[in-house]
């Protein structure tokens, strides 16, 4: 029997760390990450699931954390922007975003990086059109997407030419 109630015990692995909390059934995953766990790198840009600022990877799948309730992720492995760098060493995409000026205000950046990370895991050598499709769900109001596309392309090239690959997914793909 599933447990029914307005609050639930949730255990998740976030960026490699196991955490357990009691959450309200009505709490969105994005609020769980930001308000409960203090992982404020994941942002909120809309209230209808359109902007992708809240994108995270759950069990290997790219999702919008404002479109999921916290109790739904019980048992899941979650990757957020805070987990992309390896200590002080930025991920190739993070570096590429910096090199190519792919961020201005930086508000869309965490979600954009999660989408780009997911894209390059699925498709290490995307065409520009595939890159644009891959970030279709992430709105950026500052850059006109020009340098974001450029940065993702450069990171994929770098990877192809033997540079550091995009880190593999955490948790199994389900």
């Amino acid at each position: 029997m599933g447990e029914r109630g307005t609050s639930h015990a949730v255990t998740v692995e976030v960026n490699g760390e196991k955490v357990s909390r009691i959450v309200a059934a009505r709490q969105l995953l994005v609020h769980f990450l930001r308000d409960t766990l203090g992982l404020t790198g994941t942002h909120i840009g809309c209230d209808t699931g359109n902007c992708g600022a809240c994108s995270v990877i759950v069990n290997g799948k790219l999702v919008k954390s404002c479109m999921i309730l916290a109790p739904q992720v019980d048992g899941a492995t979650i990757e957020t922007v805070e987990g992309l760098a390896d200590g002080d060493s930025l991920s190739p995409l993070q570096e590429s975003f910096h090199e190519h000026h792919a961020l201005q205000c930086g508000y869309c950046t965490p979600g954009m990086l999660m989408s780009a990370t997911y894209l390059l895991r699925q498709n290490p050598d995307p065409t520009d059109e595939e890159i644009r499709r891959g970030i279709r769900g992430n709105i950026c109001r500052c850059t006109g997407y020009v340098n974001i596309v450029k940065a993702i392309r450069a990171a994929s090239r770098e990877q192809a030419s033997g540079g550091r690959p995009v880190p593999a997914a955490a948790g199994e793909e389900v």
Partner: peptide
């Protein structure tokens, strides 16, 4: 954002 109070259940079957 900020839903009304609601219950949640994940049936096993």
């Amino acid at each position: 954002m900020l839903l009304e109070q609601v219950e949640y259940v994940r049936p096993q079957s």
